[in-house]
């Protein structure tokens, strides 16, 4: 599969603070890719380099086969961007800004735009200064989602949206994926990334920490297992891959390395299982664990 975005060894510093410290990132064409990281990890800087707003100090960046710094006008016809903090012109209405941004990009799909305005329950007749931050976000989102572009760059797109609107957004992203278009979405909202993304890259301090599909990432993590057994699980606790075991009588609560699940479960069934609860790690745990490991 070809890469829609390929970054390698990207460095960028502002004065003495280093925002990106040798970032590598690959986004395949046609996938929804989550860029996950805490505040200040370098997510926005990455997106702004992809847009050619910032120039990387070193390293290479390729977007849709082009150089984001040099090929601005041609590349930007093929992508749409939603900034994390949307500011509007105070005396233009939301509807006017949606149309304007679409036209600046080279055209807007009016039927899709009308549908999106309805789905997001957006009032396009208000002046820019009258919108709440969630509604300002909708302006940028509707304009971007209504364009027929190959690549969408979304910087924390749901930060100001209520849960209902977040659901609408997730549906929209699913439709875009079905159309074979590419999305790079930055977020620190883990549930959102979990719901909509095919693959995830976790960055921290301007470096790639982990990348892969959610299933792949889960291989690196532990499943929590809770079992009610017929006999005490003394032998199980010492098996490789079992961590943080708590035993009270015949009750066992522990974390199991996901690649060691099979032998552990066999051992448990050998003891006789009355009740069993297995929970895959949430992205939350995955995220926290990376920070623990790297702290």
């Amino acid at each position: 599969m070809t890469a829609a975005i390929a970054l390698s060894g990207l460095r960028k510093s502002f004065g003495r603070t280093s925002a990106l410290d040798g970032l590598d990132l690959t986004v395949r064409a046609g996938e929804v890719h989550g860029l996950l990281g805490p505040n200040g990890a370098g997510k926005t800087t990455t997106l702004r380099i992809l847009l050619g707003l910032l120039r990387a100090d070193s390293g290479t960046a390729t977007v849709l086969g082009g150089d984001p710094w040099r090929d601005i006008a041609t590349l930007h016809r093929r992508l749409a961007y939603v900034p994390g903090d949307v500011t509007l012109w105070p005396n233009l209405t939301g509807g006017e800004v949606i149309d304007l941004l679409g036209r600046l990009r080279g055209g807007i799909n009016t039927t899709r735009k009308a549908k999106l305005i309805e789905r997001f329950e957006f009032d396009p007749t208000k002046k820019g200064r009258a919108y709440s931050s969630g509604n300002r976000q909708k302006v940028a989102l509707i304009s971007a989602l209504a364009s027929d572009v190959e690549l969408l760059l979304l910087d924390e797109p749901t930060a100001g949206l209520d849960p209902l609107m977040q659901a609408v957004f997730e549906d929209c992203v699913a439709e875009i994926r079905a159309e074979g278009r590419t999305v790079l979405l930055s977020s620190h909202v883990l549930a959102e990334v979990e719901k909509v993304c095919d693959r995830v890259s976790i960055i921290r301090h301007g470096k790639l920490v982990e990348t892969g599909s959610l299933t792949e990432l889960r291989h690196l993590t532990r499943t929590s297992v809770e079992a009610d057994l017929v006999s005490p699980p003394d032998g199980v606790v010492t098996l490789p891959g079992v961590h943080e075991a708590h035993v009270s009588g015949t009750h066992l609560r522990c974390q199991v390395d996901t690649d060691q699940l099979d032998p552990v479960l066999r051992a448990l069934t050998g003891l006789g299982v009355r009740g069993l609860m297995c929970r895959p790690p949430t992205l939350e745990e995955l995220f926290l664990r990376h920070y623990e490991v790297n702290r």
Binding site: L92, T93, G95, T125, K127
Partner: peptide, 26 residues
């Protein structure tokens, strides 16, 4: 009180120059 405005942009509002004109004309 603030008045409502048009729901869609006039065809003339189509590029950076027309945007700048709109911002500066008043």
């Amino acid at each position: 009180p603030e008045r409502l405005g048009p729901a869609t942009a006039a065809p003339s509002l189509r590029g950076p120059l027309s945007l700048a004109w709109r911002l500066h004309r008043g």
